[in-house]
Design a binder for these strands. Structure first.
Lengths: 148, 148
DNA sequence: TATTGTTATACTCTATAACTATA
DNA sequence: TATAGTTATAGAGTATAACAATA
């Protein structure tokens, strides 16, 4: 008598982890881009700048891998940041095909200012989660994010 | 003596929850689209079909809100699925401005088949997490995903 | 031969505004 | 006056292939 209630009917998109991931990411991206707009940055360019500010200045290939971008997209991002004097390309002495991307003093300064705003914006977005929940979420996501 | 090690130097993109969210989502999206390709679907169109297969057939406005899309994008998605005979637009009797989107028998059948593949693909992607970790992650993400 | 960075191109996705029909 | 759906369009993001320099 209940032939209309099959397994398909019971499935719900809201239980789908990939859907939740997509929706949470869309919100997070919106917050991030809004916080970065006043600095002339977006999440994408901010991430490149962040890597260039790190302890181990990355090659463009490493940026592409870490950010899951095509190397050709990294060219445009680095071009834009370099034109603003925020970072430099230095040919790697060990492998002269590779460009090492390193932040300038101005790049570090902007990263500090923008980073503070991003952190505040992210904090506001995450206010619905406790500190332990945030830590737990970060741990679970990092396992997933670097599983391949 | 350690003036070069300031707060900026210690920050790392890999600790940034929004970055982890973006990277995990990129991987998840890749898996989902790959699993759906053989059915002529993508994550976007599959999500619309899933809603149309639900117990409460949604209006296009509701689809746009739930999927965080602009209403104009929903038009194209529904057009494509309707052209394939997978769903129908029915004008809502209660509000004749609104289109209620409801799956056809063919739509339900495809949703069942594609859904099984999506679930298998998602399972493979999530293999690095235990069942309890998956449940925990889903709970944390749904809080975040529907916090606004 | 394989890899890094680059250029070019096409395609998809996203965001915006304006229009219509209904409310 | 406001809302649902639609259309059109421009911009941003994505994916692919081909090339030069280097390994």
């Amino acid at each position: 008598m209940s032939e209309s209630v099959d397994s398909a009917t019971r499935r719900d998109l809201s239980d789908d982890l990939s859907f939740l991931l997509a929706r949470a990411n869309a919100l997070s991206l919106g917050h991030g881009n809004a916080a970065l707009a006043e600095h002339g940055l977006k999440v994408r360019s901010y991430s490149v700048l962040a890597m260039a500010c790190g302890d181990a200045p990355p090659s463009q290939r490493e940026i592409a891998d870490h950010l899951r971008l095509d190397p050709s997209q990294v060219v445009a991002l680095v071009d834009g940041l370099q034109a603003r004097g925020l970072l430099e390309r230095r040919t790697d002495a060990a492998d002269r095909r590779a460009n090492v991307v390193v932040a300038t003093a101005a790049g570090h300064a902007l990263y500090d200012r923008a980073g503070a705003d991003v952190a505040a914006s992210e904090g506001a977005f995450l206010r619905v989660l406790s500190d332990t929940d945030r830590a737990h979420l970060a741990r679970l996501l990092s396992v997933l994010a670097f599983s391949e």
